[in-house]
Structures are given as structure tokens and as C-alpha cells.
Amino acid sequence: MGNQAHLTIAGKSNNVGLARITAATFASELDFTLSELEEIKVAVSEAVTNCIIHAYPLEEGIIKIELEIAENQLIMIITDQGIGIENIDEVLQPSYTTKEDHMGLGLAFIDSFMDSFTLESNPDQGTTVKMIKIPEQVKYVVE
């Protein structure tokens, strides 16, 4: 069983909800619990929010969300063409933030709620976050 969906959105705050609802709806094809679908929503919300406030601090940009189901895994790839990240190790530190009233927990939430995630970035070219989640029920069957 496999499936794919691609969503391209303008980096506006009112599109964050659209992105997470789309991802959770797509993910519901797998045997995720409601609690796991909520975790997927938080992870997508964090990744898209990062694009809006960090990748495109000065002007609105485009955010691409690629969703894929392959071998009982949900794969989500979120890409921007923004300013990129100079020091990836630094942004991976919990509570690292450059913005007042932001907690610096976006990537920590992604790390907690996904089975794996990778962050690739090139300054002035953009950033890609790849997240993978497998339903707990499937993990038990495999183990």
C-alpha cells in the first residue's frame, strides 16, 4: 500500500492549520491512534511555523509539503527556499530561539512526536525537514 500527496502553500500563518489538517487526514490512511494523529498535527505545525517565522523573516515565501505512505510508514518532507540555517547543531539545542515569546521547542516537539527526523539546510537556499512516523500498532506487530 502506498500513497502520495503534495501541498504547496504560501507562508502565511492562516495556512498552518491547513497544512496540519491535510497531513493528519492523509496520515489517517494508516493505523494511527487519535493521539498519534494529534502528534502529527503538532509536528507539521512546528515545521511550517519555523518556515514562516525563521526561513522567510522579511517576505512571504512558498512552503512545499510532500506526504508519502510507504510500507506502513508516514513520511513528511517540508521544504522552504528561505534564508537557511548557518549552524544546524545550534538550532537543535532545546530551548534555542532567536525570537522573543517563542519557546525554541518546535524541533524538540518534532523529535518527541516523530520516530525520526532530519534537518538539512543551506544558507540562502533553504531548509528541508524530513519526518517519519510509524503507527505504534504496526511496531508491536513487527516486534
Partner: peptide
């Protein structure tokens, strides 16, 4: 029904 770190940041502020 939903809160992410942006909402939490506003509350912490």
C-alpha cells in the same frame, strides 16, 4: 482542541 509551541510561547510571555 489544539496547541503548539507558538501558543505555549504566547502564554509563557
Amino acid at each position: 482542541i489544539f496547541v503548539d509551541s507558538s501558543g505555549l510561547g504566547a502564554i509563557l510571555g
